[in-house]
């Protein structure tokens, strides 16, 4: 069996940790973003209503 450098596993483990954290942060961020858009939409809607 080919001997794989154990350092590769160490590297892979930490890369995996950062990827999971980054994915989670991204998912929070994108949910926040879509909420902000929704708030903007609602505000526009209300302004339009009040002008009528």
């Amino acid at each position: 069996m080919e001997k794989i450098n154990p350092m590769n596993y160490l590297f892979a483990a930490y890369v995996a940790i950062w990827i999971i954290l980054a994915l989670y942060l991204y998912s929070i961020h994108s949910r926040e973003q879509s909420l902000r858009e929704e708030v903007r939409r609602l505000r526009d809607l209300l302004e339009k209503k009040s002008r009528q």
Binding site: Y24, I28, R31, L35, E38, V39, L42, L45, L46, K49
Partner: peptide
């Protein structure tokens, strides 16, 4: 840090949902 961030996300999400229902009633 993440708990606070996720908490406020959920709180604002529910608030927006509530506003949406209100807006639906208005329109």
């Amino acid at each position: 840090y993440l708990l606070r961030r996720r908490f406020f996300l959920e709180a604002s999400r529910q608030e927006v949902e509530w506003l949406q229902r209100r807006a639906d009633m208005v329109s």
